[in-house]
Computed example of a mutant assay.
Amino acid sequence: MTLTIPNLLTILRLLAAPAVAVMFLYFTRPWADWFALILFVVAAITDWFDGYLARSWKQETKLGAMLDPIADKAMVVIALMVITGFSGMNPWFLLPATLIIFREVFVSGLREFLGDTAGLLKVTKLAKWKTTAQMVAIAVLFATGVFEHNILDRTAGMDTRMVDDIMAGRAADHVGLVWNYYASVITWWTGVVLLWVAAALTLVTGVDYFAKAMPYLKDDR
């Protein structure tokens, strides 16, 4: 095995995947949301950066080729699991998340069955767009958690009438309640829409991958 800088970046991204969930065990919210968001965004950036460096420096290795898709899937699946937890099993999020996780498990099992043959099935540009949509959607949804908990912190001690007055403009908004509310709504629905786009791309690329694998799944007669 060759341990290059691109490979080290991939390994760090792989380790960052469970660390996203650990943030919510050791930090209170919204700090946990902030740390998870920053960690996820940095890891997502390295996903592009390590591939670019490997190609530019001609340091593409078998270790990197093996770890890169594993790190991507771990980041996505663990992040979706975390967001499912704090979104309260919202069906608008849960359905596309389920489709994405199902596809990742199915394709991973198919790759394992195909063994060395899986290397012949090249990653398409559509699959790369799918990964990008997933990463952006998840980052935006982590931001939603930040705004939601800003609202909870800033309304502590307020009664319902005071909150209603601030939101209706009848009382001064000294704590930034209104903009946090709209930021939470905008980021939530933006993230959900992007996640549905990612889910659609996930299904298309999954069907395409299965179709390409079909010739290798036929029984010998």
Rank of each mutant, 00 (worst) to 15 (best):
L94R: 11
T4W: 00
F106E: 10
A118G: 07
L9R: 09
N180C: 10
A199I: 04
V20S: 08
T46R: 02
D159K: 13
L177I: 08
W129L: 12
S56D: 08
V140G: 08
S108W: 05
V20Y: 07
T205F: 10
L95P: 00
K125Q: 13
V105T: 04
A54F: 05
D165Y: 09
L3I: 13
V163G: 01
A36F: 03
S56N: 06
W129C: 04
K58V: 02
A71Y: 07
K130I: 08
F86G: 05
A156M: 12
L99I: 13
S56P: 01
I100K: 06
V42L: 14
K73N: 09
A168R: 14
Y26Q: 11
T132I: 14
F40S: 04
L114C: 07
L95V: 15
I101H: 05
D47M: 07
L99A: 11
I78G: 07
G119T: 08
A139M: 03
I78C: 06
P69I: 11
A171E: 13
M1V: 05
A97L: 11
L110N: 08
A54D: 06
Y182E: 11
G206K: 11
R154F: 08
L3D: 00
T132W: 12
E112F: 15
Y182S: 01
T155V: 12
V204T: 09
